[in-house]
Design a protein around this nucleic acid. Structure first.
Lengths: 360, 360
DNA sequence: CTGTTAGCGCCTTCAT
DNA sequence: ATGAAGGCGCTAACAG
């Protein structure tokens, strides 16, 4: 078994190549000031002997870690998982290692910023969907780690995200355009306060006001993020005094939960109730859900690039990147059946395909 | 404001506390041999000054990284994301940092094992759902990093997983017990070869054989993993010469895709076609899908503990942990409908439907 | 219990 | 273009 030999050091390689350690170091790091032939020879020897640099030593000597911390609440959430993958792909391509910090619970987040494990452990931090307060920001800055935010609204840092208000408007506007007036809204609040759905809620008020529809508080329900909670909320809505002809959900997950309840109640989607979500996560397509798509992968890519740029140059051209969203019409929305709610036309059932943008 | 001051070192803290560096080191590392009062004082000073140890220096001196590498194909897959979260929670609690290596594509995996970027970067590796061949195993061992596998069938390493064959049997047996005989199977193969569905396929043959039902190759279809592919496959099945009364899908994702197609075709689930999946991922509950639940979080926890034990003691009590799965009956499976009252589009050979009893 | 002394493996001026 | 030497910050023997 080979396992217990002392790993080769730079000095070993240098000796093998008949050069000094400094030259070996320069050669292996693609640093300037080495004769091409020498460099090749050294690299060849290193490769042949399976030499691997000691990150610890390099890090200690050079003062950089070549590591980036990824701070994210939950990987089980599609948005965060996808963003994380995208960020990782960019960082990995740039030769940076990714340290993962999962901070879903508030106490985990506090502990993270308290202990600042990232302090000397990473060169930069990417926070995905985590609220970073002013205090944390200062703390981070004073410690000299760069920070980039993705998918949140941490205006304090360079960030990339979508416009939540415009996104919500797309969804509600679609329902209004179909002729709906009794539109319920299921607002998902993150129990861990990670996501502030404020803007998605405002969008509802905006569009209803523009359409001259009074907001009926009985049609607004706030839940903890999650399909099950949404299902329960929908049950309440169906049992309530005002039955909605359409539902605006803050996410696909919520929308899907609502749909399950509607179907279980013997009602049909979209014939009896239309439902629209936000995200266009994979289950949305499988459930034929009308939703507003946000470019999740792209957000991660952009955030990753920001970090790489920051690490390379120390500065950033674009400090705020807002990506566009688009309505994806599938088969969970249709005009309301009851003509009292549909001034324009009676509900006709659509059979096939029909993907694409909505009548704005 | 933002300080460019040199970060405090252990020596600074030692001086501040009026002790030697060694004592300070011992105090901060909870190592034995420090007077309680002294220790408290040192810790207090360190905290007050916001001292943070330099991982690089500690690592270089001690020869361990206190980092664990997590090798996983995709975070966007529910199984892998959940397992990853679970593993992370255990490792974080043990004070270990987690380095993430995403190797979804075959070339990424090859590159990983070729270059072994983890080589001197981590103390151990957890591989989640990645096939590790004999060659890779030797490579890893020769480098002296511990390896634990989760959710795969890498018998070469300490591992935790489920029994895929038994799991598949649960699903198919359920359909058979309901009285189904024309059972289609949609087998999902990972295009990246990460998952080998062999055992889930065998389960189908097993149970059908036991039930005395001949396997009809026209009812077996193999696809690339994914809901969309499953939807297409289901369309093929419905258009085929033998219409199944039930479908056994290799995963929930596949099952959901199939259901969409069935519904779009104007058929009903489970009245016209029953569908069963595997996993019990969150969308399963939302879609009321009958499925076989596997304890994903638990698998991650167990794998994480294995690593921690390995790092602490160097050995492992249990080197192979197989966790149980269970059938979850929801509303996508039911006995086959009597052919007499089944409206058909094309004539099919009718077989006497054997009324099923209630599911187990 | 505590201090002193050596490195850990590499990068980086400085010479040459 | 290359080599020599110092030090990055910490831990692990040893002494005391």
């Amino acid at each position: 078994m080979v396992s217990d030999e002392r790993p080769l050091t730079l000095a070993d390689i240098a000796r093998l190549a008949g050069v000094g350690a400094a030259t070996a170091s320069r050669a292996l790091n693609e640093a300037a000031g080495v004769a091409p032939a020498t460099r090749r020879r050294i690299q060849e020897i290193a490769r042949a002997h399976g030499y691997v640099i000691s990150p610890a030593a390099a890090s200690l000597a050079a003062g950089v870690t070549r590591r980036v911390g990824l701070v994210v609440p939950h990987l089980s959430r599609w948005f965060q998982a996808t963003t994380t993958e995208a960020i990782h792909s960019v960082l990995a391509a740039a030769g940076l290692d990714v340290l993962m910090y999962l901070v879903g619970r508030a106490d985990e987040r506090r502990a993270f910023f308290d202990r600042l494990p990232a302090r000397r452990n990473v060169d930069a931090l990417v926070v995905v969907g985590v609220p970073v307060g002013k205090a944390e920001q200062l703390r981070l800055e004073s410690v000299g780690v760069h920070v980039v935010a993705a998918g949140g609204q941490s205006v304090a840092f360079p960030h990339v995200s979508i416009d939540d208000r415009a996104t919500g408007r797309l969804a509600v506007r679609h329902l209004v355009n179909l002729g709906h007036r009794r539109i319920a809204t299921i607002e998902a609040e993150d129990p861990d306060q990670v996501v502030q759905p404020r803007d998605r809620s405002r969008a509802y008020d905006d569009v209803l006001a523009e359409a001259g529809v009074a907001v009926d508080p009985r049609l607004r329900v706030v839940i903890d993020w999650g399909g099950e909670q949404a299902a329960a909320a929908m049950a309440g809505l169906l049992a309530g005094p005002v039955r909605p002809t359409a539902v605006y959900a803050h996410s696909d997950e919520v929308a899907l939960g609502a749909i399950r309840t509607i179907r279980r109640a013997g009602l049909r989607v979209p014939d009896d109730v239309s439902v629209v979500g936000i995200d266009d996560a994979p289950p949305a397509a499988l459930a034929d859900l009308t939703t507003v798509r946000q470019p999740v992968w792209e957000q991660g890519i952009r955030a990753g690039r920001m970090v790489v740029d920051l690490l390379r140059t120390g500065v950033l051209a674009d400090t705020s990147v807002i990506l566009p969203t688009e309505l994806v019409v599938r088969r969970t929305t249709a005009p309301p059946r009851d003509s009292a709610d549909a001034p324009r036309r009676r509900g006709t059932r659509r059979r096939r395909g029909h993907r694409g943008r909505s009548p704005t």
